[in-house]
């Protein structure tokens, strides 16, 4: 335990208003989130839009200002405020973004895109750099000749692989993948997911995998955290979350996944209705007055659920 450890992370965005643009309040995008990642595993962050899952990922890598809480990476604190060894951490933690169409600079050649992190952190000669980039492209399954091409000459899946090549260029230890396949077609999505799994073994990578697609999350992740309105409602292994969800929010989310078997249509409809009824009836038991989840309580070694205080 403790490869990456997030303790009580809070990211609040101020709401400005009034005549002088004073801060009137805060949007609590992330409001007290704690979890930890094991080395070489994949941790999935799931939630619907606005749940704070992306903000969490971006806060870890320093793209969002952290209001409160601590982040430890390999037992060193890397919270933005205590970030002295910043560049080292930036090397070890990389990010893959959602949109392979807009996250690559269209005016740069693949060589320059992939070499950018190398240029920032390592001083390589032109020739060395070229060889490294070619190796990286080969690693992601693109032909080494493509270094002189521009992003628009590639398909969506290939672009996402260029993004991955850039992310792994510095041999990072942790990759934060923010909806890496949401913009891709299913067959391309399969390609990227397979590939991410492959390099995970080869490069001993740890993933923080952020997605709203529960099918993809289940396929990829060992551990899963479910977020709702900036807080965790449940955390556990993929099995626990999908086969034995405890929080009504998780239950409803899992029930809403379309079932691939058309014969189960009626069954699913019934089941969903039951879950929805339960959700509506038990809503006040599972959420506080502000509609936020309570803090997590362990129900087994790995399974934590935001259950109400007993009283």
């Amino acid at each position: 335990m403790g490869f990456l450890k997030v303790e009580d992370l809070k990211v609040h965005f101020p709401i400005k208003g009034g005549l002088f643009g004073r801060t009137l309040g805060h949007v609590k995008a992330v409001d007290g989130v704690s979890f930890s990642l094991d080395k070489g595993k994949t941790y999935g962050l799931v939630g619907e839009s606005g749940s704070g899952k992306s903000t969490t990922g971006r806060a870890i890598i320093g793209l969002n200002h952290i209001t409160d809480g601590k982040i430890f990476f390999e037992d060193n604190e890397i919270t933005a405020t205590a970030r002295k060894a910043k560049s080292d951490i930036r090397k070890d933690i990389q990010m893959i973004f959602q949109d392979p169409y807009s996250s690559l600079n269209p005016k740069k050649r693949v060589l320059d895109i992939v070499a950018e992190p190398l240029r920032n952190f390592e001083s390589l000669s032109r020739k060395e750099e070229r060889i490294r980039v070619q190796e990286l492209l080969e690693l992601v399954g693109l032909s080494p000749e493509s270094i002189l091409k521009y992003p628009h000459e590639f398909s969506g899946g290939q672009r996402q692989r260029i993004g991955i090549a850039r992310a792994v260029a510095l041999k990072p230890k942790l990759i934060i993948a923010d909806e890496p396949v949401s913009a891709l077609d299913v067959s391309v999505q399969a390609q990227v997911l397979n590939f991410m799994k492959e390099i995970q073994g080869e490069l001993d990578l740890t993933y923080l995998f952020i997605s709203h697609d529960l099918g993809v999350i289940k396929h990829m992740c060992d551990h899963i955290g479910i977020m709702y309105k900036g807080r965790f409602v449940e955390e556990g292994t993929a099995k626990e979350i999908f086969n034995d969800p405890q929080h009504i929010y998780t239950k409803r989310l899992v029930a809403a996944i379309p079932d691939i078997d058309p014969r189960k249509r009626e069954e699913m409809k019934q089941f969903r209705q039951e879950v929805n009824t339960e959700y509506e009836q038990a809503y006040n038991d599972y959420f506080n007055e502000e509609g936020l989840a309570y803090s997590l309580k362990p129900i087994s070694d790995t399974h934590l659920v935001a259950l109400p205080e007993k009283g």
Partner: peptide, 24 residues
């Protein structure tokens, strides 16, 4: 068949997804 095999299925465990070679 390829489409079916390339989707991560919430009901089944698959180690590897099928990848349709080439592009549309």
């Amino acid at each position: 068949k390829s489409l079916f095999n390339s989707v991560p299925n919430a009901n089944e465990e698959q180690e590897k997804l099928h990848v349709i070679q080439g592009i549309v």
